[in-house]
Nucleic acid binder design. Structure first.
Lengths: 151, 151
DNA sequence: CAAATCCCGACTGTTTTAATAAGATATGGG
DNA sequence: CCCATATCTTATTAAAACAGTCGGGATTTG
């Protein structure tokens, strides 16, 4: 029902966590899982897909972990979601890739609605990058300080 | 994964079907199910919710069926989806109604993303009415005729 | 070598989905 | 008044998806 599964949610959280530690060498999944309150084993499964798609790189062995595959400004939330949840499509007949077309697709009025929904979701998710999120986090942090000051 | 279930899809199809027969007296579920290629029994369950929410009215007995609860221009696709799929919310913490807030909601960067997604979905679904769909169907029909003409 | 860490596949319990089935209730027409 | 046609309601179910858990293997640092 237009719900994101934990895959997408956890994945974005984890990627954001990695973005917050960019330039500090590899970050272990254990620490990500602890900070974000996610099962480490489950996170392993999710990150596997992210690695295969190149969104993160892994460093094996002790002191190993994960680093972002490219700069935060080059990683869109849409990239993450597509890897973890599959192509964006409220219904299969308007999938971004391989749309399983029904016979009446050309003249289906219902279909045009789902296309609009898909486009609007993709537009939002592709307009936000990990860099954007880092900036937003800074702003929220500033507001929070201000708020605390008045208490 | 941001998928609509058949409830939403079938529901919109069924409501659109009723809209196409507005003013013709009650339309039986059987005929709707046949035209739209949906299991009649399953459709019964879906329409039950639509009736309870006033989007359709029922007429029992022979020659009975369903009619729209108000004019097509007053029924938004968002209304239908909310009844059949629940409040629009890619994740629970940004539900349109009773958002189950997590403790960190105020300062959660991830959350703001899901809010934007929710708003963009709601905006699309609330901008389209059954009336809009009827107009679109007319246009598609016209195009189709034109296309057929050239063959 | 030992500890930390990534990597991989199999298994499990719960929930959701998408129906199906069976019967109760209502009503217009003959 | 009866019956075919409908709406209503509840229960059951098969299959899939979801959200992990578990056990073990491979790789690297100290």
């Amino acid at each position: 029902m237009l719900k994101l599964s934990t895959k997408g949610r956890y994945g974005v959280k984890a990627m954001f966590d990695l973005a917050q530690h960019v330039g500090e060498g590899p970050t272990s999944l254990k620490s990500v899982a602890e900070r974000q309150g996610i099962s480490e084993h489950y996170l392993e499964q999710l990150i596997s897909g992210l690695r295969k798609s190149g969104l993160v790189k892994s460093v094996r062995g002790a002191q190993g972990g994960y680093i972002l595959g490219r700069e935060p400004s080059k990683i869109k939330i849409g990239d993450i979601i597509r890897v973890l949840e599959g192509p964006i499509a409220p219904v299969d007949c308007v999938s971004e890739e391989d749309p399983e077309c029904c016979a009446k697709a050309e003249f289906c009025v219902t279909r045009t609605i789902w296309e609009k929904v898909r486009n609007s979701i993709a537009e939002v998710l592709d307009s936000i990058t990990l860099e954007t999120m880092l900036e937003d986090a800074k702003k929220l942090e500033a507001e929070r300080s201000l708020y605390m000051y008045y208490i």
